[in-house]
Amino acid sequence: MTVPIPGPPRPTDPRGPDPRAAVAAAMAGLDALAERPLAEHVDAYERVHTALGDALAAGSA
């Protein structure tokens, strides 16, 4: 019996893209948020929230 080795999926992985990459990209959207106008913060958090929800849904499929 073979045991799968954990790690990022390979590009040919039938499960699709790695949701961890989407999480990292979403979190990068918060970089330098402190230097941006306060009015832009809500939009930035909403984009991250949506991206994280999408990654969570993709990971549970």
Rank of each mutant, 00 (worst) to 15 (best):
G16T: 12
E40R: 07
R47H: 13
L52I: 15
A58L: 08
D43M: 10
P6S: 13
A22V: 12
P37W: 04
L33W: 05
G7T: 05
P9F: 01
H49L: 12
P4H: 07
P4I: 01
A34D: 15
R20E: 08
P14Y: 02
A44Y: 02
D13C: 14
A34W: 00
A32W: 07
A21Q: 15
R36C: 10
M27Q: 12
A57E: 12
L52D: 00
P4W: 02
P19E: 00
T12D: 15
D18Y: 01
A22Q: 13
A32T: 07
A21K: 13
V42D: 10
A55R: 00
D54L: 06
A39N: 06
L33A: 14
G29I: 02
P37N: 06
D18K: 05
P19I: 00
P14W: 04
D13G: 14
L52V: 15
I5S: 08
A22W: 00
A34I: 09
E40F: 05
P9G: 12
L33T: 08
A26Y: 03
G7V: 05
E35W: 03
A22M: 09
V3C: 01
Y45L: 14
A44G: 03
G29Q: 09
A55D: 04
A61T: 14
A28W: 06
V23W: 02
R36M: 08
P19H: 06
Y45F: 14
G53W: 08
G59S: 11
T2L: 03
P37V: 09
R15N: 09
P8E: 09
A57T: 13
A44F: 03
A32Q: 14
A39I: 09
P37I: 06
P17S: 14
G7I: 04
A44P: 01
P17A: 11
R15P: 00
A51L: 01
A22R: 11
A22S: 15
R47C: 08
R20S: 15
E46Y: 10
D43F: 07
D31R: 13
Y45H: 12
P14E: 05
G53L: 15
V42H: 07
P8R: 15
E46V: 08
T50N: 11
L52P: 00
A55Y: 01
G16V: 08
H49G: 07
A24E: 12
M1F: 11
E35N: 14
D13N: 14
E46G: 02
L38A: 13
A21D: 15
E40M: 09
A58F: 01
A51R: 02
T50M: 10
A55M: 04
D18V: 03
R20K: 11
G53I: 02
G29V: 02
L30I: 06
L56T: 09
V3E: 06
G59H: 06
L30P: 00
R10K: 12
P9L: 05
L33D: 01
R36S: 10
H49V: 06
V23E: 07
I5H: 09
G59F: 06
P8F: 13
A39V: 10
D43C: 04
M1G: 14
L38Q: 09
R15G: 04
P9Y: 06
D31G: 12
R15M: 01
P6Q: 04
E40S: 14
